[in-house]
Design a protein around this nucleic acid. Sequence first.
DNA 1: CACATTCATAACTCGATGGTTATGAGAAAT
DNA 2: ATTTCTCATAACCATCGAGTTATGAATGTG
Lengths: 107, 107
Amino acid sequence: MTSSPDLLFRALADPTRRALFERLCLEGEQTVGALTAEAGISQPAVSKHLGVLKQAGLVHDRHEGRQTHYSAQQRALAPLVDWTGRMNRFWEARFDDLEDLLKRMDQ
Amino acid sequence: MTSSPDLLFRALADPTRRALFERLCLEGEQTVGALTAEAGISQPAVSKHLGVLKQAGLVHDRHEGRQTHYSAQQRALAPLVDWTGRMNRFWEARFDDLEDLLKRMDQ
DNA sequence: CACATTCATAACTCGATGGTTATGAGAAAT
DNA sequence: ATTTCTCATAACCATCGAGTTATGAATGTG
């Protein structure tokens, strides 16, 4: 039972994969060939990385003729944002508590 | 030159490590012994994970007598939040462009 | 001092993972 | 029909990483 943040963190842990995702985010849809041209690794390696990203829901593929276009699915980052939010909420909560404490001590 | 988000993603990619960090975030400072008691793995394994988290700046350790207390450094998540923000900003930008386009088409 | 406790490090094992080359499937071009 | 192009998959290899046990260093305790 691999939870949702787990797949995301694992997929984005690899720098090559993150670079691919960033390119798709910043430059929009790209073919495998275009991605391979700048990735510095072989085409099969790129395809495998794209497969991992796809399984994590981070990218979407569209087949057109004999080439495949990949695009970023930024919505998939939501669980990641939620997670960091949950981890920070408690920091803020404690901060608020501290503020309250200081206020009460001040009176 | 491992960049900042890289260390963070890699550190948080492991579920055991993420669980440790979550515990420190939610329950506050803990000794290695306390963490080991619930981690389901050996003490050396926990120590190693804490070492990785520490190197990523996600936790801070405080030595007191013969035990070490670890606590979460939630501020370290900032680069991660920034990164997701950068990846999403473009999504919003495109969304805005689309909205603009639709408005212009409407007139 | 001798012993116990707490943690970190060393040495090792083993499965996961990222890379490669080879090849096949499908679509386009000649 | 044959060839070419684009991508995915298979098979393999090397490295990495997470776990283990064993042990040492440092601190407290009898």
